[in-house]
């Protein structure tokens, strides 16, 4: 269900509802649906998270590998994103059907993280010019019910928080080269500082107003959307317009301000929840898909 069909009369109903700030499910224009977040769901990874937003289900797995740093920035590690829109979500994604959407999503993720402040890449460096940590962030889309960007960004942030990178010891070996040793102790690991990792907020323009966390029906009524990634301080790292319609400059400004406000307010409850989950430790009953 990547898109749904809506009749003209339904569109009018939705439009008027949004104008009066009462959406079809009773939310106001800036409310999110019920969200459930869980980390450490897949054990073959160094970090993972599962996010359920309404009926949208996203699973993120992060694997850390040792690789060669990029030539332009020899003292930093880097991230590689891959979004898999699986056929589980809708039969349209079978075979190569989900590739287009997956490429669009991963390109946006690259843009969002392409700045100095979101993640401290220097902390991922092992030995400049030779070895660095390379994080493969794999996003798996299992069910699609609108608002993919937001769900994916929250899942990526949660998975990064959960990532445990083994500590590395560099020693000189006999021939004068460097030898890398990974610590054997599974608890001896480095955590990533995700404080400045941004979250994406999608604002859909419906009529003269904009809505946050649009359902598929609301998306069908909107002509254009604005994707804004916002950090916990309210800094905007990336703004993109998607959709076939056009937006006038005033509404872009209004939507950016609203996006900053909404995005800023997402981080605090998310970090609190992640820390609460971590503090439960072994006592937490793992749910995964068995709930």
């Amino acid at each position: 269900m990547a898109t749904v069909q809506v009749s003209e009369a339904e569109k009018v109903y939705i439009l008027h509802g949004i104008r009066d700030d009462l959406r079809v499910d009773g939310r106001s224009c800036e409310d999110y649906r019920h969200m459930e977040i869980e980390t450490d769901v897949v054990s073959n990874t160094d970090g993972s998270a599962k996010v359920t937003l309404g009926h949208t289900v996203v699973l993120v797995g992060i694997k850390a590998e040792i690789g060669k740093p990029r030539p332009m920035v020899p003292d930093e590690g880097y991230l590689e994103f891959f979004v898999d829109c699986s056929a589980n979500a809708t039969p349209e994604f079978e075979g190569r059907g989900g590739e287009e959407l997956g490429t669009e999503l991963s390109n946006t993720l690259y843009k969002v993280f392409n700045n100095k402040r979101s993640l401290d890449m220097k902390s991922l460096c092992i030995s400049p010019g030779e070895h660095c940590w390379l994080l493969y962030v794999d996003v798996l889309l299992l069910q699609c019910d609108g608002n993919l960007y937001d769900a994916i960004s929250i899942a990526v942030k949660a998975a990064l928080f959960n990532t445990k990178i083994p500590r590395v010891h560099i020693s000189a070996d006999d021939e004068g080269g460097k030898e890398i040793e990974l610590s054997d102790d599974p608890y001896d690991c480095v955590r990533i500082n995700v404080e400045n990792v941004p979250c994406i907020v999608t604002l859909c323009k419906v009529g003269h107003r904009h809505v946050v966390d649009a359902t598929l029906q609301e998306k069908a009524c909107s002509v254009a959307s604005l994707i804004i990634s916002v950090t916990h301080k309210g800094t905007v790292t990336c703004v993109r317009k998607v959709g076939g319609g056009s937006l006038d400059p005033e509404s872009i400004f209004e939507m950016t301000e609203a996006g900053k406000r909404v995005g800023k307010a997402l981080h605090a409850p998310l970090m609190k929840l992640l820390q609460q989950e971590e503090s439960l430790g072994k006592k937490r009953q793992k749910v995964g898909f068995l709930g």
């Binding site: 106001s28 999110y32 969200m35 977040i37 709930g291």
Partner: peptide
């Protein structure tokens, strides 16, 4: 503006 985030619970 409200966002309701929570941990999943095994539901009977």
């Amino acid at each position: 503006m409200a966002s309701d985030m929570r941990l999943p619970v095994l539901r009977k």
